[in-house]
């Protein structure tokens, strides 16, 4: 490693096991963007935690703040226009937001890695895929060109790219969408990161390929015991791979729950709407449910609960009071004044 001082005293390798501190903890994070029209509050006090070997699915529509939160964890937000006025992002107990840029770039790619949605645009078009994977070893580990390329081929094999040895000198545009995403994955797991953030990794792919990629990710996670944050707007993707789910709306978490609980019964009207809008075999012939209205305008958030203009169970206090995140059980919480009613189906 180029800068050994960083990971020895800032990031003790075993601090994850001390007490109850999780591998990665986002705590009351706020992110805002300064635009010509005003300040857009994209993330408003988000907290979640991730343990080693665990998969957290972050669910929400465009503009819910799920990707912005992930970019804040990676430290790849453009600041300005972005600003983080409040909050902590603790990785193995260390607040990443307090580190210098040099220290953070030591963590990026090595300890926390990220996969992007569109691999075609996320890979550099003018360098071969081998070069781009090998770069991880050459820059972070100081390996020779030859050794780094050998590692790259090894990784391409590991993510099951056929004829890796021959294809290592090909350019990204010469691969199919699924293969490109595999290269993206190979690059991200190159240095055995502790945390892998996958930002809609399958959205741009065909349905059949989607399943293969998700399977690959799950398998790689089992092998290496990494913690994974899976960002998606697609509840269908989540069920098989995630351990727990955080549902985001308007820059806040509206529901936190273990994956099976949520599928059984939603504790927030927005989650409920999402669940009902998944096409299901047993509901064939019935009209598919869709949440009415549009996502909130970040520059002009609704008063009270951000979801109230679209909520079928809206009461008067939803318009005036911002609901807190109520704890339902040790592992579950909901930011709805009427979570009890939503949960047992008596709301509205």
């Amino acid at each position: 490693m180029k800068n050994p001082s960083v990971d020895t005293h800032l990031l003790p390798a075993d601090s994850g096991s001390i007490g109850t501190e999780p591998l990665l903890a986002v705590d009351n994070l706020h992110v805002e963007f300064t635009t010509r029209q005003g300040v857009a509050r994209a993330v408003n006090g988000v907290s979640y935690a991730l343990n080693a070997g665990e998969t957290l699915a972050v669910l929400g529509e465009s503009g819910s703040g799920k990707s912005v939160t992930a970019q804040a964890i990676m430290g790849i937000l453009d600041m300005p226009p972005a600003r983080i006025p409040k909050g902590e992002i603790r990785f193995r107990g260390t607040d990443l937001l307090q580190l210098s840029e040099a220290q953070r770039s030591q963590i990026r790619g090595q300890q926390i890695a990220m996969i992007f949605q569109d691999a075609l645009s996320a890979l550099n078009p003018v360098f071969t895929v081998g070069w781009q994977i090998a770069e991880m070893f050459r820059v972070h580990k100081g390996m020779s060109k030859k050794a780094a390329y050998a590692k790259a081929v090894e990784l391409m094999d590991r993510v099951r790219i056929p004829a890796a040895k021959q294809r290592v000198n090909d350019y990204p545009h010469q691969f199919s969408g699924g293969m490109r995403q595999r290269i993206m994955i190979a690059m991200s797991i190159a240095l055995d990161p502790d945390v892998l953030i996958a930002d809609e990794p399958t959205t741009a792919l065909d349905v059949t390929v989607q399943a293969q990629i998700m399977e690959l990710l799950a398998e790689l996670q089992r092998e290496s015991n990494m913690g994974m944050i899976l960002i998606t707007h697609d509840l269908g993707v989540v069920a098989d791979v995630a351990d727990k789910i955080a549902v985001m709306y308007g820059g806040r978490i509206v529901e936190n729950a273990p994956v099976h609980d949520i599928y059984r019964n939603a504790a927030h009207p927005y989650t409920k709407g999402l669940l009902e809008s998944i096409p299901r075999v047993d509901m064939k012939g019935q009209e598919l449910y869709a949440i009415k209205g549009l996502p909130p305008n970040l520059l002009d958030m609704p008063t009270g609960c951000a979801f109230h203009p679209r909520c079928p169970f809206r009461q008067d206090d939803c318009v005036t009071d911002v609901p807190a995140l109520h704890e339902i059980s040790g592992t579950r919480s909901s930011a709805c004044h009427y979570w009890r009613e939503v949960l047992d189906g008596t709301a509205g």
Binding site: F33, T35, Q37, A40, A42, G60, E61, S62, G63, S64, G65, K66, S67, V68, Q71, P81, A82, Q117, D199, E200, T203, H233, P295, N297, L298, L299, D300
Partner: peptide, 17 residues
């Protein structure tokens, strides 16, 4: 869809007046 703000600025944000 990525939900970075820069992308959706032109659509959802209009001069308020």
């Amino acid at each position: 869809m990525s939900d970075t703000l820069t992308e959706q600025k032109p659509k959802s944000v209009k001069p308020p007046k």
